[in-house]
Structures are given as structure tokens and as C-alpha cells.
Design a protein around this nucleic acid. Structure first.
Length: 766
DNA sequence: TTAACTTATGTTTTT
DNA sequence: CATAAGTTAA
């Protein structure tokens, strides 16, 4: 263990670290060494004799949890650090719920639904209720339900709440309470919890089972919570219950960086912490070690426009530094080009590396212009966020099989894979079984054990039986085999891997590789040693529960990868870079249109801007475009109101991309026009193609006595008549017996066509 | 059944 | 514009 861990702390940091018993609130300004204090404090607790098994540290993101683990490992050595309970709210509660699942009537291997899973459940409920998914958009409905859960409002309370019901009625969606009710029932029946349930059910568990509550109250003698300003009501209540016995609760946060209210977070939690406990110790970390004076000045001035803050004044010992540059460009593409140029220039002039730069934007969609410009200049970059690996179709398919094996109670997975790869269980068979399941209120999986009883005939019934036998064979090995072995076998015997392997298209290849990557990550999971001793295991069930809570695939430590980082400001929270570009500072984009209804919304946008500014250590650029492409057409926006809040003495302004000073000045305008005309007017070729298609299809009039023959009778070499293509000769018949495909030569007018015999009507010419 | 085609629709932010 | 969802033809 490091001896000198207390060295190098300033007075307030040291005060926070050395506080041991009783509630503690650390107000940590941006760049004030928050993580250092948190990790050192944990080390100090252990140093002072606290049992490492009895410390719980909750973070908001996986990244923060990983960083904390690593840094504590450095101070204490990994063997001691391993005993700590560190993780996100969601992952820690998932682990506890897994242990206590039976009390709530859930299987130990309950499925965790991500947002897509949740939306598809809502979709099935919408069809059940005969509601159209236009006014009841699944995303909207889910948001409503999510907000309710985060406020600890269950389906029954939701239905009884006059105010909520009024809101729904006013927005013309009066039946959301009914959807919520069914959604909850459906999730329960499926043995599944969504993200919000991990909090909601945790709360329920503690309330309904006092012995469980006291078990965890006693276990967790010390509780630390990071990013306290981003906690929501359910998290707040859970913490309150868990900490009630020892009251050794330490919260760390910065109200100026509260940016997750859309997830139900409420700044009130941090603003009122002092009133929740008696004798709360408050420590403010106000010295900033990250940024130059100029950057900090801008940040302070901007945030001072918000009301209702915990009073604090950030200061720094660092030098004044460069002025902030505010840059206007003509379009979003110019913005991209300007930034790529600037990065090149900075690298040349000041010897920065690629990894010293970050481009921060409000929405993921903005990344495209930067991708293009960076690629053009051969600057390596990495985009964070966007659609995750686990959201890809092929990965979800594979995971659906694994989830099905572990939790057959969840019919969502069955529906997804029952006929993929194709095994002759069509929509009709599935629907029939679903109806039976609904009528008798039993799981679909049960119905599938007796397909004949559900009214399925020969081939279909046999296919279902085989499917059940196959899944069961994987289940029998659940106990003895680890996650990887089962996943490998499942990929093989379900035919999923072969299906992807046989697809030789570019996308098909990528999909196959993704499955291999997934299998590798499962292997990695099985081979890395346990982290939290008693609660982790290497079973498939354990793997699946953590995987849904993971955003990125755990790969090489990208910290040192020499690439420019592109990410949303939300994703950048907690990070820092020497050079930061905060882009797209335009009204309706940043601040976003959605936030302009009320003061709170706007203030949150401002905090977001504050977060962006305070990521920068040395240099900061703030850019905006006169106009940018949105939904395919050029839209012009006013400069963001936040720009007016930046004092001119700390900044300088520049313009680029104005007409006439581009790289192709001589025939720039003409060239641009030409390009445009090519894009807007439908091309002659397209028109010609259309015309030809129309004329050539105006073809064959079927014979008066036209009647389709049984496709089974059609043989190679026969002459046939097609309703549209006229007469032709069968050249070959291929494909399987339940989907024969014939190649037929229809002569000059149509040439050779591939025709599926079961669907095209053909008359045999005898 | 499935692939190709047309049409609608959307941009916050994430566990 | 870019993708998902819905439609239609084979």
C-alpha cells in the first residue's frame, strides 16, 4: 500500500478525505480533484480500519466506476480494492436483485430489458389494445412510464393520480395508464426488468422486506455517491433507506453540472442534502487544477446567469492562457473543415498529439460533418456513443438465444428467434400459440411444449417440438458449463453462426465478425477473475445481466490511443482535454428547441455548456454555423444566446467560410451551382429508366382460360405461361422443396427471371 | 417467404 | 439526408 496517499491534497480535499463518520457533502467544482478525493477517502477509510467489504460506492456511469476501481487499486493494491462494492446504481442493484429475486417473484436469471426491448413490448401492448402507434409513440409512452417509475409511481398510483391523468388526456393519450399497467404485468410475466425497474424494484424490495433492508443496511457501513446532482427520486429514496442506520453517507457533486433531468434527476437532492440529516459536514472544493484562468473566467461568467446555486467560487493557480476563440462559419461543413484545419495547424505549431483534442457536440447527429473533414485530412479519430455494439441486429439475435436459454419465461426472445434461422415456424403457428398462451395466461414456452394441443399440424408441430428440445439441451448444460461454452454451442447448433457465415456480402461479413467479437467478449468475461467475490459467477445468467448495462465493449484502454475524440457533451462529463472544440452554438440546437419551454430547461442547457467549457485545460474553441443541414435542407440559425454571455475581454472572434475566400475562388460560385443542379433535378437517366420500365411492362395479356397449375408439377424444360411475362421455358429449378425457385427464359422482351413457384401463378402449356 | 421498392419520419442528452 | 417501417412483386 502506498504510504503517502495523503500528500498532495489541499486543505479542503484533505478535510473531505479525513472525515470518517457522519453525513458528508462534498461540493466539487469542475476540475477540483473530485475523483482523487473520493478514491483517497475510500483508501483512508480502509486504512483507518474499516472493512473493505462494507463500503459501497455508487457512480453514474460504468466509466466512472472503472476509473475509481483502478485508482483505488493503485493506492491499496488490487486484492484489497477487489472487495469493495463499486458500480453504477443500476449494476449494483441488479446484483442485489439477482440474489433476492425470488422474494419479488422474479427468476434469479431475470432478463434486463434495454430501451429497444422495452419499446417492443410496448408495441405489442399497443396492438393488443388496438391503439395506433402514431399518437401513442412507443418512445413517448416509455418516457412517461420511465418518469413515473423514477418518481416511484407504480401503475396503480399512476392511474389514480388526477394530475397525471389530466396531462395524458390533454396530450390526447388518455390510455397511458392502461398501457403502463399491462406493461408492468407483461414484464413480470416475462421475468424481465427494464432499466428503471432496477431502481424501482430495489426500492420495493427494501420496503416490502424489512429483513432484507436491515441486511443491507448493516452490510454497507459506508456509502459514497458520485455525481449526486444527477440522482433521481428513486435513487434518493433507496440511498436514504440504506444509509439510515449508520448515516455514513458521503455525497459528491456539483449542482452546476446537473445535466440529466430528462432522466428524472433532480438538483433538489443535492440542494437539500443538508436538510436530510443532522450535522451534515459540508466541504467545498473550489480550487480548479484543470483549466487556464481564461477558460475558468468564461465558465464562471456563463454559469452566473443561472439562479438557485450552491454558492462557490472556482479559482485556479494556473496561468491566464490563451483567449477563447469564438468562430463563425457559413455551414456545418465549413465548421468541420475549420476544425480539421485548426487541429492540423495546432499539431504543427505546438506539437500537440491527436489525443489532445476533443470535439464536443450537443447531439450525436452532428458528428458526421467532423468525421468527413477529419477523414479528408487523414486525422485519426474515434466517435464515442451512437448506436452501441449490443444494439446491432445480429448481436441482439444471438443474445436473444442466450436469454431464452437462461429465462424461457420471456416470450420476447422466443418471438425474435423462433424462426431465425428459418425452421418452418411461421407467423400463423406463432400467433396460434400466442393466443393460447394469452387465453390460459401461461407462458408461451409452456404452450410450445404441446404444439399439437395448440392446434398445430404435422410439420409445424414437429418444428416447434424440435425447437423446444434444442433449447432444453442447452439448458441442461447451464449448471456445469460456463457462459462461453454455452454461447459457442448455441451459436453453432441453432444455425445462427452458419447463417451469417453463408452471407458473403460486405454487411454479412461484418455481421459474422460481430458475432465472433461477441463470443470473444464472452470468453473474456469467463476468463477474467471475479471482482466482487461473493456476488459474481461465470454463468451465462451472470454474464447476461451485466451485459445489458454495458454501453461499450470493454476493449483496449483507449486513453493512450492517439486519436481525436468526438462525443456528446453528456458523454464528456468527467473528462478533460488540452484542446476542446465546443461546436454548434446555435439557437434551437444549443440550447435545444426542446429546452426552451421553461426556465429550468434553459438553465440545464446552460449547465451543459458549462460542462463543455470546463472540459478544456489549455485551449478552447467555440464554433457555430450560419446555416446547417437539417433533415436534408439548409436551415439558418441565430447564434446561441450563450455566446452573448461570454465576456469579450476573455475571447476573440473569427469568421471563416464566407463567400469568395474559399479554396476555389475563381469559379467557386459557378461550380457550386452546377453541383446543386445535378442533385436537385431528377436525373435524365432515372427518368429514362422509369419510362422504359413502364413501357416494357405493358405486356402480355393472359390467355382467356388462364389458370395456375400446381407448382409441384412444374418440371425443368416445361413451357409455361406467366400472367405478365407471357410464355417461357423453365431452365432450372433450385432452392429447397418448400421454396423452389425456377429460372425461366421468357425470350426477348423479359429475358431470364428467377421465380418462386409458390407465389407466382404459372400455367403449364401442354 | 423474401427482397426490392416506396414512403414516412425524425434530432436531445443515457443507465 | 438517412433510416426504419410499410408495401408490393416475384
Amino acid at each position: 500500500m502506498q504510504q503517502n496517499y495523503l500528500d498532495g491534497l489541499n486543505d479542503s480535499q484533505r478535510k473531505a478525505v479525513e472525515h470518517i463518520n457522519g453525513p458528508l457533502m462534498i461540493v466539487a467544482g469542475a476540475g477540483s480533484g473530485k475523483t482523487k478525493v473520493l478514491t483517497t477517502r475510500i483508501a483512508h477509510l480502509i486504512r483507518s480500519g474499516v472493512d473493505s467489504f462494507r463500503i459501497l460506492a455508487l457512480t453514474f456511469t460504468n466509466k466512472a466506476a472503472a476509473e475509481m476501481k483502478e485508482r483505488i487499486g493503485h493506492i491499496l493494491g488490487n486484492s484489497e480494492a477487489r472487495n469493495l462494492f463499486i458500480g453504477t446504481f443500476h449494476s449494483v442493484f441488479a446484483k442485489i436483485l439477482r440474489v433476492e429475486a425470488d422474494k419479488l417473484g422474479y427468476p434469479r436469471n431475470f432478463t434486463i430489458y434495454d430501451t429497444d426491448d422495452a419499446k417492443s413490448v410496448i408495441k405489442t401492448i399497443l396492438t393488443e389494445l388496438n391503439l395506433d402507434d402514431k399518437s401513442y409513440k412507443p418512445a413517448f409512452v416509455l418516457n412517461r412510464i420511465s418518469a413515473a417509475k423514477n418518481a416511484l409511481i407504480g401503475p396503480a398510483e399512476y392511474a389514480e393520480d388526477r394530475l397525471i391523468r389530466q396531462e395524458d388526456e390533454r396530450s390526447n393519450r388518455p390510455l397511458i395508464h392502461e398501457i403502463y399497467k399491462r406493461y408492468a404485468i407483461r414484464c413480470y410475466r416475462n421475468g424481465a426488468m427494464d432499466f428503471d425497474d432496477l431502481l424501482f424494484k430495489m426500492y420495493e424490495l427494501l420496503v416490502r422486506f424489512p429483513e432484507v433492508l436491515s441486511k443491507y443496511q448493516n452490510k454497507f457501513q459506508y456509502i459514497l455517491i458520485d455525481e449526486y446532482q444527477d440522482t433521481n427520486t428513486s435513487q434518493y429514496q433507496i440511498i436514504k433507506m440504506l444509509g439510515a442506520v449508520h448515516e455514513n453517507i458521503c455525497v459528491v457533486g456539483d449542482d452546476a453540472q446537473s445535466i440529466y433531468s430528462f432522466r428524472g434527476a433532480t438538483v433538489q437532492n443535492i440542494l437539500q442534502f443538508k436538510d436530510d440529516y443532522q450535522d451534515v459536514n459540508v466541504v467545498k472544493l473550489e480550487q480548479n487544477y484543470r483549466s487556464t484562468q481564461s477558460i475558468l473566467n468564461v465558465a464562471n461568467r456563463v454559469i452566473s446567469n443561472n439562479k438557485n446555486q450552491i454558492e462557490k467560487s472556482l479559482w485556479t493557480d494556473n496561468g491566464t492562457g490563451e483567449k477563447i476563440r469564438i468562430v463563425r462559419t457559413m455551414t456545418d461543413n465549413d465548421e468541420g473543415r475549420y476544425i480539421a484545419d485548426t487541429i492540423s495547424e495546432m499539431k504543427l505549431r505546438y506539437h500537440y498529439a491527436n489525443k489532445d483534442f476533443a470535439i464536443l457536440y450537443r447531439t450525436n447527429a452532428q458528428s458526421r460533418a467532423f468525421e468527413e473533414s477529419l477523414r479528408k485530412k487523414n486525422i485519426p479519430y474515434k466517435i464515442y456513443g451512437g448506436l452501441s455494439f449490443y444494439q446491432r441486429k445480429e448481436v441482439k439475435d444471438m443474445l436473444a438465444y442466450l436469454r431464452l436459454i437462461v429465462n424461457p419465461r420471456d416470450e420476447e426472445n422466443i418471438k425474435r428467434v423462433i424462426n431465425y434461422p428459418v425452421r418452418g415456424i411461421g407467423k400463423t403457428s406463432l400467433d396460434r400459440m400466442l393466443i393460447i398462451a394469452g387465453e390460459h395466461n401461461i407462458p408461451l414456452w409452456e404452450v410450445m411444449h404441446n404444439p399439437v394441443g395448440a392446434g398445430l399440424k404435422g410439420a409445424a408441430a414437429a418444428a416447434v417440438e424440435n425447437f423446444v428440445i434444442m433449447i432444453k439441451s442447452f439448458q441442461t448444460s447451464l449448471e456445469k458449463d460456463n457462459a462461453y461454452d454455452i454461447a459457442f454451442n448455441a451459436g453453432k447448433h441453432t444455425g445462427l453462426v452458419r447463417e451469417l457465415y453463408n452471407d458473403k456480402s460486405v454487411e454479412g461479413l461484418a455481421r459474422y465478425e460481430n458475432i465472433q467479437e461477441l463470443l470473444n467478449s464472452i470468453k473474456e468475461f469467463t476468463e477474467t477473475p471475479d471482482e466482487e467475490g461473493e456476488l459474481t459467477d461465470k454463468s451465462l445468467g451472470s454474464y447476461l445481466q451485466q451485459i445489458t448495462l454495458l454501453t461499450e465493449v470493454g476493449k483496449e484502454d483507449d486513453e493512450n490511443q492517439d486519436v481525436v475524440r468526438l462525443m456528446t457533451i453528456h458523454a464528456a462529463k468527467g473528462l478533460e482535454y488540452p484542446c476542446v472544440f465546443s461546436v454548434g452554438l446555435e439557437e434551437n440546437l444549443f440550447p435545444s428547441t426542446m429546452s426552451l419551454y421553461d426556465r429550468e430547461g434553459l438553465e440545464e442547457e446552460r449547465r451543459l455548456f458549462y460542462v463543455a467549457v470546463t472540459r478544456a485545460k489549455e485551449r478552447l474553441w467555440i464554433t457555430y454555423a450560419n446555416s446547417r443541414y437539417r433533415f436534408g435542407n439548409l436551415v439558418s440559425n441565430e447564434p446561441s444566446r450563450f455566446l452573448d454571455e461570454i465576456p469579450s475581454e476573455y475571447s476573440e472572434t473569427a469568421y471563416t467560410g464566407t463567400a469568395g475566400n474559399q479554396q476555389r475562388p475563381s469559379f467557386g460560385p459557378r461550380f457550386a451551382q452546377k453541383e446543386q443542379s445535378f442533385e436537385k433535378v431528377p436525373s435524365l437517366k432515372q427518368l429514362a429508366d422509369k419510362l422504359q420500365k413502364n413501357t416494357s411492362t405493358a405486356a402480355h395479356t393472359p390467355s382467356a382460360d388462364f389458370a395456375a397449375d400446381d407448382p409441384a408439377e412444374i418440371q425443368k424444360g416445361m413451357k409455361v405461361e406467366h400472367q405478365k411475362f407471357g410464355f417461357g421455358q423453365v431452365l432450372t429449378i433450385e432452392g429447397s422443396s418448400n421454396n423452389p425457385i425456377a429460372t425461366i427464359d421468357f425470350g426477348a422482351g423479359h429475358g431470364q427471371k428467377k421465380i418462386m413457384l409458390f407465389y407466382a401463378k404459372l400455367r403449364i402449356v401442354r
